[in-house]
């Protein structure tokens, strides 16, 4: 049963990989360059905007974030959308740290068997 589930999941992952490779061969994926945004305009010609007040720039960024992701919390929007790779690596750091702690403390885990 375990081997069957593992084989099925491996086949599914292989199919996903083949599909994505074939798709990327067909056409170039659409990348996000941000050329139609207020922030891009602000960076190109900043004399059109009122940036003497720091809240003015923050308002522009918050408005663009809301229009782009519809998430009110801007930190979550950046961490999980624009910086998705960063969060992926961060969560795998936690996984590796806990695996290391498990290897060091592996003798203590027998006590949990006795506690049952």
């Amino acid at each position: 049963m375990k081997r069957l589930v593992m084989a099925i999941s491996l086949i599914v992952i292989l199919c996903i990989g083949v599909y994505s490779v074939v798709y990327m061969q067909q056409e170039v994926p659409i990348t996000y360059d941000g050329s139609d945004l207020d922030v891009y305009e602000l960076q190109q010609n900043p004399q059109d905007y009122d940036i003497s007040d720091p809240d003015g720039v923050a308002d522009i960024i918050v408005k663009e974030n809301l229009a782009k992701t519809q998430a009110v919390n801007n930190v979550t929007a950046i961490v999980f959308d624009f910086r998705g790779y960063d969060t992926l690596g961060e969560s795998f750091i936690l996984l590796i740290a806990i695996t290391g702690a498990t290897v060091i403390l592996r003798r203590r885990r027998d006590r949990w068997e006795g506690g049952k």
Binding site: T69, Q70, F80, D81, T87, L95
Partner: peptide, 19 residues
Amino acid sequence: SSGTIALMNYSVGFKVLTG
């Protein structure tokens, strides 16, 4: 309201909770 942001948020929360 925010699509995959909320879903990825829940998965990371579950992972950190168990870890």
